Simulated assay, not measured.
Amino acid sequence: MEIFDFELKHVEEAKLIAISNYNEEREYVKVLPEIYTFPDLEHFANNGLGVVAFDNGRMVGFLCCYEPWESAYNSKAKGTFSPIHAHGTVKENRCRVYRKMYEAAAEKWVKNKITYHSIALYAHDQEAVNAMFTYGFGLRCIDAIRPMEGLEIQCNNEVIFEELSKAEIPKVREMRKLLTEHLGHSPCFMYSTQEVFERWLTRAEARNTRLFVAIDEEKPIAFVEIAGGGENFATEVPDMCNICGAFCLPEYRGKNIYQSLLNFTILKLKEEGYNRLGVDFESFNPNANMFWTKYFTSYTNGVVRRIDECALNN
């Protein structure tokens, strides 16, 4: 097997491999949409950070990433990310191909002082997952999906469910703050200062999303925030919506309120012609992991590796 730099001449063949890998995941997750327009790969050929693998003259895989950014995951490290469309392999010897490609790509990345490596893998591609896990990666993020069909639950009728108007969005500020505080605690450790939270809140309230809430005695007690697109190309189809925020006050949990709010949201969106609902969440958030995997099917595993800073001195 030979590893080369990923160049423009490799784009079309690499795209066929990536499409094939996506369709493999669709065999496990039937609700994933059929994709007619695949994301462009040319910019990955221009940043000099990608690699391609050949075996006996045949392309067997490629691994590319975005340009690096500073302070990855609010750390002091420079990071990069390889989305699900920026890598792929043929089925034969997949684990070995991924390992060989990552060895070559990681050498490039660290030479460019990129020490936070993040790769989105298909959840049912056990060979790719195993290749990355044995090379020091751990699970961080998950994308999941479900058909826009009502939940099989006994709905809670003791509270009111409704969609907020744009003017009413500030009503969930306190819950957004509580969600941020929750993510800052163990085992998530996604801590935000008050200043960072205020900046994020300003952006969150200005974005073009929809908020559905559960209300008890005129007080919002839970919300689900819905956006058009999500975290990968599969979420960009017109008949799909994506959850980009969710929270329920602790004292109202365990009463089927959040399930009922989700069901209300699903039925409303289904009436509007949407057929799929996506969500992304941190795997190390126990509340989110337990809830979303009960009602949604995972289709990506976002894995990360932090290279020790001593490597930069080599």
Rank of each mutant, 00 (worst) to 15 (best):
A167Q: 15
E168G: 10
E168F: 10
E168T: 10
I169H: 15
P170G: 11
P170D: 10
P170A: 11
P170E: 11
P170T: 11
P170N: 12
K171R: 13
K171H: 01
V172G: 00
V172L: 02
V172Q: 00
V172N: 01
V172C: 00
R173G: 01
R173L: 06
E174S: 12
E174Y: 07
M175F: 07
M175Q: 08
R176A: 12
R176F: 13
K177P: 02
L178Q: 15
L178F: 12
L178C: 13
L178R: 15
L178N: 14
L179M: 13
L179I: 03
L179P: 00
T180P: 01
T180F: 05
T180V: 13
T180N: 12
E181S: 05
H182R: 14
H182Q: 11
H182G: 00
H182I: 00
H182C: 01
H182D: 09
G184H: 06
G184I: 08
G184L: 08
G184R: 06
H185Y: 05
H185T: 13
S186P: 00
S186V: 05
S186I: 05
P187A: 14
P187S: 14
P187C: 14
P187Y: 10
P187E: 10
P187H: 12
C188Q: 09
F189C: 10
F189Y: 15
F189M: 14
M190G: 00
Y191V: 13
Y191H: 06
Y191F: 11
S192R: 15
S192A: 15
S192E: 15
T193K: 07
T193M: 03
Q194V: 11
Q194C: 03
E195Q: 09
E195Y: 04
V196Q: 14
V196P: 00
V196S: 11
F197D: 03
F197R: 06
F197V: 05
E198T: 10
R199F: 03
R199Y: 04
R199N: 10
W200L: 05
W200R: 10
W200N: 02
L201S: 07
L201A: 10
L201H: 09
L201W: 09
T202Y: 02
T202F: 01
T202I: 01
R203Q: 04
R203F: 00
R203P: 00
A204K: 08
A204D: 12
E205P: 01
A206C: 03
A206G: 08
R207I: 09
R207Q: 14
R207F: 04
N208K: 13
N208T: 09
N208W: 04
T209W: 01
T209Q: 04
T209F: 01
R210A: 10
R210V: 08
L211D: 03
L211Y: 07
L211V: 11
L211S: 02
L211M: 07
F212Y: 15
F212L: 08
F212V: 07
V213L: 03
V213S: 03
V213Q: 02
V213R: 03
V213M: 03
A214I: 06
A214P: 05
A214S: 13
A214M: 07
A214Y: 04
I215T: 14
I215D: 04
D216H: 08
D216V: 03
D216W: 02
D216I: 01
E217T: 12
E217P: 04
E218I: 09
E218K: 15
E218F: 11
E218H: 14
E218Y: 12
K219L: 05
K219N: 10
K219F: 02
K219W: 01
K219A: 06
K219M: 07
K219I: 09
